[in-house]
């Protein structure tokens, strides 16, 4: 437990949060490992968690008929996997496929939500961090959509 706290309090993602706030978050987390080839979650499934990736690579995939799984984005050490636990109806939008053996801290979604509801200051700190993730991914996807490297004729 205290090991997990020590890890999180030093982590850039939680930088700026008070020790007490980090402790509340740490209470909802536990270390989980995934092997290459595993699926962490699947599109449409119940979104009840998020993961801080400590090592390894995870691909967010969409299944397209006739083309198999298409990789939308990959996530790597230091990044957060999963935001759908925050918003009803709590369903995953992608498949999370493990590209290489991955070490994570898995945080329990419902418990995090309850903690945030109970302490709006903590809730706001979490919201700022997850909104940043959403903004970054939206910006990236906008650029990807432009297909800037294609050959215009």
């Amino acid at each position: 437990m205290s090991e997990l706290f020590d890890l999180l309090v030093e982590h850039p993602f939680f930088k700026g949060m008070s020790a007490e706030q980090v402790r509340v978050v740490a209470d909802t987390g536990m270390p989980v490992s995934y092997r290459e080839g595993e699926t962490i979650f699947s599109e449409g499934g119940h979104a009840d968690a998020c993961w801080l990736l400590l090592d390894g690579d995870v691909a967010l995939e969409l299944q397209t008929p006739g083309h198999g799984p298409q990789v939308m984005q990959t996530l790597h050490a230091g990044e957060i996997l999963g935001w759908a636990w925050m918003f009803p109806p709590y369903r995953w939008h992608f498949d999370a496929h493990v590209h290489s053996d991955t070490e994570t801290i898995r945080f329990d979604g419902p418990r995090l939500r309850n903690a945030a509801e109970a302490d709006p200051v903590l809730g706001y700190e979490l919201m700022k961090r997850f909104t940043r993730i959403l903004v970054d991914r939206m910006q990236s996807i906008r650029i990807q959509l432009l297909d800037v490297y294609s050959t215009p004729r």
Partner: peptide
């Protein structure tokens, strides 16, 4: 920007590599 599972490397915009 786009890949199927055969590609083992990162997928995403080049700026996503900055923090690595």
């Amino acid at each position: 920007d786009h890949a199927d599972r055969m590609w083992r490397g990162p997928v995403g915009v080049v700026t996503s590599l900055i923090n690595r």
